[in-house]
Amino acid sequence: MNTLLLLLGVAMIFAALFVVFAALGGLTQERTGVHRSLAVLEALTSAPQEMKQELEPPFSERVLIPLLGRLQGLGSRLTPADASVRLRQKLEHAGNPKGWTVDRIIAGKVLCFLAALVVSLLASVAMGIGFLPTLGFVVLASVAGYLTPNFYLYQVAYNRTEQMQRALPDAIDLLTISVESGLGFDAAVAQVARNSEGPVAEEFARMLQEMQIGRSRSDALRSLAERTQMPELRAFVSAMVQADAFGIPVGQVLRVQSSEIRVKKRQWAEEKAQQVPVKILIPLIFCILPCLFIAVLGPAAISIINNFSGTVG
């Protein structure tokens, strides 16, 4: 019995020593880990800004770009083969907005589709409508979300075309004056691109760059016409290509085109002015006339109601 108690006491002593040494080692390791963490934090704090940017990429690079890559792959499998060509043409008409590519548009269409699907489904559940109305609402919202990037590109292209219609006559006049003053066609185009602003100046600058890298004048002009949706600019390009092919003096052609574009601009302004009464008809009927009727006939209606009710107004 005494021997058993002695062995048990020795075992407990060794166990206590083991626990003590283990605790000391754990504390040492913990302190070492804390020191290492503090050292890393201090190194990151004192590191140059370039190194911090490399070690800590922004949220867009860590999350958004991989997400867009996966959505792009999904959209590419669901999109028809010729859709990329149509999207690239729409981008050309919109002036190639910065950061917009065909792949990003496809990924954006999938993202808008999923967002519209989730939001419409949650809204339907919150309103507590039936199954068939929920299904129809979700389908319509999802399709609208999928087509949202296309609507945006169409609106950007439409606004850009209107800006070009306003600025084209002045650009052609400046081009005509520059050629008639003795400059060559390329120098006159550079003068227009340098002294003008907006989409027309950008398109002329791009045409000049294409001619400088080796493309012929006719090909550069045809590319200019393909990137726009303006009939006036297409007619101008056609006249300039024919003048270049048949050797007709450029100044004479420019003078005729300038006067024709001025006439078309006046006709376009008159057309817009004729559209004003039609466009103002809906807000006039639904917004202005009801308020006018309330303001004019309201006191008379109150007096009539008071008279019929037997009260004195």
Rank of each mutant, 00 (worst) to 15 (best):
M12V: 11
L111T: 00
S238E: 09
T45F: 13
A23V: 10
P299V: 06
A225E: 04
L254N: 04
Q165K: 12
E202D: 08
K98F: 08
T161D: 15
S84Y: 08
G95L: 05
L153T: 01
I65A: 09
E270H: 14
L4A: 11
E162Y: 06
W100C: 06
V276K: 14
R77I: 09
I106Y: 00
D186I: 10
D244H: 02
A83N: 04
L41H: 09
V278C: 05
G182M: 04
M240Q: 02
A83K: 10
A300F: 12
V253L: 04
G136W: 07
E56F: 14
P58C: 02
G298A: 02
A243Q: 06
A243T: 05
L289G: 04
E162I: 15
I213V: 13
P133D: 05
Q29V: 14
G99H: 03
A39D: 13
L153W: 01
R206Y: 07
L87D: 03
L5I: 13
Q212D: 07
Q163K: 10
G130P: 01
E92N: 12
M127S: 11
I65M: 03
L4V: 15
I304Q: 11
Q191L: 08
R31K: 14
L68E: 13
G75Q: 08
P290A: 02
L55H: 04
P80Q: 03
A47L: 10
P199S: 00
S259G: 12
K272Q: 15
S76T: 15
Y152F: 12
R36L: 13
P249R: 03
V19E: 08
R62Y: 06
R31L: 13
Q53K: 11
S76V: 12
V179Y: 03
K98V: 13
P48E: 12
I177T: 12
G184L: 04
V125Q: 12
A141E: 00
V63F: 10
T176R: 13
I177A: 13
E197L: 09
N2E: 13
P149G: 10
R227G: 05
L281G: 08
S196A: 12
E270Y: 08
L67Q: 12
E197P: 01
I248N: 15
P169T: 01
I105H: 02
L208S: 14
E54T: 11
S259E: 14
E232D: 15
G145N: 05
R266Y: 07
M51K: 15
V237H: 00
V200T: 01
F137D: 00
A187F: 10
L64N: 09
Q242E: 05
G75N: 04
P169F: 01
M207G: 05
H35V: 13
G73E: 11
N96V: 07
L233C: 07
Q29F: 13
H93M: 09
I304C: 06
K265A: 12
I13R: 09
E232M: 02
S303R: 11
I280S: 13
V102E: 15
C291G: 11
A141T: 01
L122H: 00
L71I: 10
T148A: 15
L6W: 08
N150L: 10
I294M: 07
A115H: 00
V40N: 06
A220D: 04
G25A: 09
M127K: 09
A81P: 10
